[in-house]
Amino acid sequence: MAEAAIVAQGLQKHYGAYHALRDINLSIEAGETVVVCGPSGSGKSTLIRCMNGLEAFSEGQLNVLEYEVGDDLAQLSAIRKRVGMVFQHFNLFPHMTILENCVLPQVRSLGRGREEATEKARQQLARMKIDMHAEKFPDQISGGQKQRVALARSLCLDPEVMLFDEPTSALDPEMIAEVLDVMRDLAREDMTIVCVTHEMGFAKAVADRVVFMAEGQIIEVAPPETIFTAAKSQIARDFFSSVQS
């Protein structure tokens, strides 16, 4: 067994009276690709956002790599340097060129020199097949291209874990494939990936396990072929039959 990259034990989260996460226990091994799915409001985004401290939880323990997620800002910043995140709405910095979007985080987070950072950025942009747009600004490229830039920006920091929060939900249908393609390549490497998505084709192709959540709880965890065809719970069967049609 490989060592665990992410371990959640008894995680609870309340928004006022609303119980967003209920007793989450989950262990993700290094190098594993895990897809998290479930109906909206099931807490999947909240869970993934807890993993790099963008969201705080109320009870329980969450370990990412060798760090503990909590109030300690030094630990949080150490986690964020080694854990990348890609958002639904890309969140590129609109006042910088594509290249600078990829260079500045390296300089500020890792203290890399500009020259080295620029070389790294060009390399990652080329890998995402977007290097020809390096000098453009984010509002000059398409959604699919933006998401690939966001991915390149994260990969420039050489993360060991990548978190994806619905990376294709804001894209036009014809652009979903270009993003999923590069994510698929990534999943085949030894990167640890946690991805919230409704793309069941992607889950089938690359996920080692699928986590199904509903109402803040983890209902089932199983390999994709099992959970898609023979989920134990009725709610999971209903969900998968609706998204796979």
């Binding site: 790099n52 963008l54 910043s77 964020r80 340097k81 854990v83 990348g84 995140m85 958002f87 709405h89 969140n91 590129l92 910095f93 500045l104 985080p105 500020r108 987070s109 890792l110 966001a150 920006r153 994260s154 920091l157």
Partner: peptide, 20 residues
């Protein structure tokens, strides 16, 4: 999302404020 993206990239607080 701007602040979240910058934070999740591990950028220090002063840089999130001044650069982003």
């Amino acid at each position: 999302g701007q602040e979240e993206a910058a934070l999740s990239l591990g950028m220090p607080y002063w840089s999130v404020i001044l650069d982003i």
